[in-house]
């Protein structure tokens, strides 16, 4: 029996009379890498923010790690990690200071913070940069660091909003290594991306068009269903029907 860590039913978000997320229903299983695709403006970030407790849904149901997003948004927060689309570490703090700060916010003990920092810096081979300001790091390293910080407190689920935007191919590979490692440790990964090669790495994919989920399955099954050679083609088929420009 699979354990479902995210369950949504008819989840909807309206801004005025514009429906950004339109009645989406899906589930995500524990330990899964769940890809959340869609053209720009499809509503991915908006949906993700509702699941993280950052934004109140207009209607519909959703639970994350078994917790209701309406009534217990704050409680969800200690069970998840989040990397927002904008870069979200403090650029004017050093690598270690960022780790220490977020560790402290998530109430890790001092000794935990210490061992975690060492582990993390070592894992990312950031030793020489440990006391440098994050703002001075190359983009790829910043993103890897941000991801590691987002899972510092060992959350059940981590939400990644376009984590590999502007990252070179090599660093992207390394980034996905980190993701697999985290997934291997039982952390559920919920990720949005515009790279179709990355989509192939996911266990299951949903494709959003104009706020609705148009397709949801494993990459293989989707390719079969749309008789496409690769994910690019699947995406084109679906996204072409989109009305939302940009």
């Amino acid at each position: 029996m699979k354990e479902e860590v995210i369950i949504t039913e008819g989840l909807t978000k309206k801004f005025g009379n514009f429906t950004a997320v339109d009645n989406i229903t899906f589930t995500v299983n524990k330990g899964e890498i769940f890809g959340f695709l869609g053209a720009n403006g499809a509503g991915k970030t908006t949906a993700m923010r509702m699941l993280c407790g950052l934004s109140k849904p207009t209607s519909g149901k959703a639970t994350v790690a078994g917790i209701d997003v309406y009534s217990q948004a704050e409680k969800i927060k200690s069970n998840i990690g989040y990397m927002s689309q904008k870069f979200s570490l403090y650029e004017d703090l050093t690598v270690l200071e960022n780790i220490k700060f977020f560790g402290g916010i998530y109430k890790l003990s001092d000794s935990r913070i210490k061992t975690k920092s060492e582990e993390l810096v070592h894992r990312l081979s950031l030793e020489p940069q440990a006391n440098k300001l994050v703002g001075s790091l190359p983009q790829g390293w910043k993103q890897k660091l941000a991801f590691s910080v987002a899972i510092l407190h060992e959350p059940k689920i981590v939400f990644l909003d376009e984590p590999t935007g502007g990252v070179d191919p090599l660093a992207r590979r390394q980034f996905w290594d980190l993701i697999y490692e985290a997934a291997g440790n039982g952390i559920t990964i919920f990720i949005t991306t515009h790279y179709m090669d990355e989509a192939e790495y996911c266990n299951r994919l949903s494709i959003m068009v104009d706020g609705r989920i148009e397709a949801l399955d494993s990459p293989g099954a989707l390719k079969q269903k749309y008789e496409a050679a690769n994910m690019d083609e699947v995406f084109y088929r679906l996204a072409r029907g989109a009305k939302r420009a940009e």
Binding site: L54, E74, K75, K77, I80, Y82, S84, K86, F87, I105
Partner: peptide, 13 residues
């Protein structure tokens, strides 16, 4: 404006 507040808001602080 910088966006770091999102990262704070998503913590249980």
């Amino acid at each position: 404006e910088i966006g770091t507040i999102e990262q704070i808001n998503v913590t249980p602080v």
